[in-house]
């Protein structure tokens, strides 16, 4: 989160060095080549795979039709439940794409302290 990172330069009330993520080290050169792609993907965010996306929009149409006649029926609830299930699946699929889009990003998420994951600021 940008705001927490920004305040790293002024850690007013704590002394424990372990708390500071070692991703930003002042006074070194930041190497942009390997990381730039990852950021570009992250900032735009992947879209839902078309297969699931179609299923979500179909399920919404069906639920609206099913519930047009009788709003309190079990069929209506089941139809909207299917919408929820598919929407959640779509969201998980997007997360998966985001994770798998850059293996270095994945690795660095869990191992921010390793050399290859350091980001250097000027």
């Amino acid at each position: 989160m940008a705001s927490t990172v920004a305040s790293l330069s002024t850690p007013a009330t704590f002394a424990a060095a372990d708390v500071v993520p070692r991703r930003k080290v002042a006074g070194r050169v930041w190497f942009p080549t390997a990381r730039r792609g990852g950021f570009a993907v992250r900032s735009s965010g992947p879209s839902t795979p078309p297969g699931i996306s179609d299923k979500v929009s179909e399920s919404i149409k069906k639920a609206e039709e099913t519930c047009a006649d009788e709003q309190v029926s079990g069929e209506c609830a089941a139809a909207w439940d299917e919408v929820e299930e598919l929407s959640a699946a779509a969201s998980h699929a997007r997360d998966k794409l985001k994770e798998s889009s850059d293996p270095l990003e994945n690795y660095c998420k869990e191992n921010p302290e390793t050399d290859e994951c350091r980001i250097y600021d000027n």
Binding site: S47, V56, I60, A63, A77, W80, D81, S87, S91
Partner: peptide, 24 residues
């Protein structure tokens, strides 16, 4: 936040889904 960008979803569909599932 999760669904608005999804094709076919609207404020109404999100609300309808929550309401239809609520009794169960």
């Amino acid at each position: 936040q999760r669904d608005m960008a999804e094709r076919g979803h609207s404020l109404e569909s999100i609300q309808a889904s929550i309401e239809a599932r609520k009794p169960d």
